[in-house]
Design a protein around this nucleic acid. Structure first.
Length: 603
RNA sequence: GCCGACGUAGCUCAGUGGUAGAGCAGCGGUUUCGUAAACCGCUGGCCGGGAGUUCGAAUCUCCCCGUCGGCUCCA
């Protein structure tokens, strides 16, 4: 949890003198310098914690008299920091007895620091403080010798943060900055950010006409013709692969009487994330945020034998979740989405083997795109249903499976991050600027089958309760596609590309050339390739090629008078992803592209 | 939901109290050209919505909606 990390940076037994200058030390020192500047400019500021983080640092502040920092203030703070850098202000370390340090910060009215000291382990008897000019901070260090080395620092943004990461607490303001050894490193970092912006799926989604997010439907994407092709390719791939692995697809209602949600527990544990539809005075329907309750309804339509298990229901229905307005983010955080979701009913003995099958699907699905992913185990949350003993059993099973499949260091554990009905293994991926997003999830559930009264008859004729595995491999197609677009910078693998080949005529007023172009397209289409004649009458060939490149069409075929006159059925193929052109006969071209589509190669 | 920023033509943006602009896209015309932009012309805006201040508001104030960066929450 962030606040624990923060505390560790601030306090604890003093660390011994530093060795060599690292970026971590530099950034931590930059955080101190920023706090010093803020305290000079806004006397009475309380400062909380200020660690180094990936690519930079932050510091949390509470300004006096309800003042709030704005972007304009950052300019002034940065200028003040610049003056302190020029003065080579030393970072002076002092070790104080714990109670003396407490008195020091208490006397300055620094309540956050006092609270940190009070949270220290009982056996910590002394702490260190660092002085930078008039600024003094509780801190384990180590630090730079003086502020003169902080030559490449830039403040980036201000954000509101809840004290100790809890939204019931008052909100502080956090200033983020970045710091590097040299101005050249800083420039390289800023260039990296700019490159990430060029890959942003929201920008590419608009440019490539994949999807649209309208003001009247926040978080609920419109899929445009190009996007529908990509989405449908992923859907049919998912259907085919799951069918081959024994999954049966079902389709269920989008809204159900709230009684269903009361049975599942969603009414009590998930309602704030649901769209509720009032139907009449007595009745409310809930728009489904998850597929699981309906899978249980289908399971209960008849008696089941142990021989039928595992019973695997694939559910690709549309889901709606009422996410808080400030959390929406392009396709990566939406309110309307579809998952490659499934619910697998198993006996307790079948859990491990079924997890193995699911993890194999996972590897298959991600390897196709050459994507790196990682696992995270989420354990029992505060707001859970069922009994602790069952939870422990479920968590123990997942832990064993993960250790066997991923190795002891191959996953992380996030305490309290499980679903309300069971622990889960999440699959994590990163977007263009390195933010982590959960895509797939494999959840183990002993609770819902009980709540729905699900049963199967075992070999001895006894009725038993099955266990359910909730699993989505890509997670939501929306989020997965968002990550995919950023991963490929818009240049999707051929099998997903909306237009796979565009045929460009050199002369669009020569009927024989246009006939040839149309005929090539027809032959490509007959081979189930998505092809089109470039459509911009009067434009020169170069402009048409550029247009196709900008729309990230993977292949461009050029035909002109010379090809028609030669009459040998050979055209020029341009590969827009790898660059370069080559001559190919049309049958050869079709075979080449059909093979690339079938292989699903990333490029 | 909270903190900060932002919202001007389909897109990218300029305009900060005095008659709404540019490039690209689109449309019309000329050009038919061999691997990333031919040329000329034209159209296009309740300046996110509402209220207020002012002789006068894209510009200042307030409220609402949405977007962006964080926080919290999460696929």
């Amino acid at each position: 949890m962030p606040e624990d990390v923060d505390d560790a940076a601030e306090a604890g037994p003093p660390l011994e003198a530093p060795v060599e200058l690292t970026l971590d030390i530099l950034r931590h020192s930059a955080a101190h310098l920023m706090a010093a500047a803020v305290c000079e400019l806004f006397p009475g500021t309380q400062y909380d914690v200020g660690p180094s983080i990936e690519d930079g640092f932050f510091y949390n502040f509470l300004l006096p008299e309800d003042r709030h920092l704005t972007d304009g203030d950052l300019v002034a703070i940065e200028a003040r920091m610049g003056q302190l850098v020029k003065r080579h202000v030393p970072y002076q370390r002092e070790v104080l007895p714990r109670d003396e340090a407490r008195r020091l910060f208490d006397g300055m009215g620094q309540e956050f620091k006092v609270a940190i000291i009070d949270r220290l382990a009982p056996d910590v008897s002394s702490v260190s403080v660092y002085r930078t000019g008039d600024f003094v901070d509780l801190c384990r260090g180590p630090h730079v010798p003086d502020s003169g080395v902080l030559r490449a620092v830039k403040l980036l943004r201000v954000a509101g943060v809840y004290w100790r990461g809890d939204e019931r607490n008052p909100q502080l303001q956090r200033v983020y900055g970045t710091a590097w050894f040299s101005p050249a490193d800083l420039d390289a970092y800023l260039e990296r950010i700019a490159e990430a912006e060029r890959r942003d799926h929201r920008r590419l989604g608009r440019e490539l006409e994949l999807f649209h997010l309208d003001d009247t439907a926040p978080g609920m994407p419109y899929w445009l013709p190009n996007g529908v092709i990509v989405l449908n390719e992923l859907l049919s791939f998912s259907r085919r692969e799951h069918r081959a692995r024994g999954y049966k697809e079902i389709i269920a209602p989008l809204i159900n009487d709230k009684r269903l949600w009361e049975t599942s527990g969603h009414w009590d544990h998930y309602r704030e994330n649901m769209f509720i539809v009032p139907v009449d005075e007595q009745t409310s329907y809930g728009v489904k945020p998850m597929n699981c309750p309906n899978a249980h309804v289908v399971y209960n339509l008849r008696r089941h034998s142990y021989r039928e298990l595992p019973l695997r229901y694939l559910q690709l229905d549309t889901l709606h979740r009422f996410e808080r307005s400030g959390t929406l983010h392009g396709l990566l955080r939406v309110r309307k989405f579809q998952q490659d979701d499934a619910h697998v009913f198993v006996t307790e003995e079948q859990i491990e083997a079924e997890y193995d099958r699911i993890l194999e699907i996972t590897d298959h699905f991600y390897r196709i795109f050459g994507l790196d992913y990682s696992f995270r185990l989420g354990t029992r949350p505060d707001d859970f249903i069922g009994d602790i003993e069952t939870w422990d059993r479920a968590e123990g099973a997942l832990l064993r499976i993960l250790e066997r499949r991923a190795g002891a260091g191959g996953f992380t554990v996030d305490p309290g991050e499980g679903a309300f009905y069971g622990p889960k293994v999440d699959i994590l991926m990163k977007d263009a600027i390195g933010r982590s997003w959960q895509t797939g999830t494999i959840q183990l559930d002993f609770q819902l089958p009980r709540r729905f009264g699900c049963e199967y008859i075992d070999a001895s004729g006894q009725a038993r309760t099955p266990v359910v595995i909730h699993r989505a491999i890509y997670g939501s197609f929306e989020r997965f596609l968002g990550v995919l677009i950023e991963h490929f910078a818009g240049q999707l693998p051929l099998w997903l590309a909306a237009v796979q080949v565009e045929v460009v005529p050199v002369q669009d007023d020569v009927e024989a050339v246009m006939d040839c172009a149309r005929s090539v397209v027809e032959r490509l289409e007959a081979a189930e390739l998505r092809a089109a004649v470039s459509d911009s009458p009067g434009n020169r060939m170069q402009a048409r090629i550029r247009d196709a490149e900008l729309r990230k069409v993977p292949y461009v075929v050029v035909v002109g008078k010379r090809d028609v006159e030669r009459g040998d059925d050979v055209v020029t193929l341009r590969d827009t992803r790898r660059g370069g052109t080559e001559q190919r006969s049309v049958p050869d071209l079709i075979a080449l592209l059909a093979d690339e589509v079938a292989s699903r190669r990333p490029s």
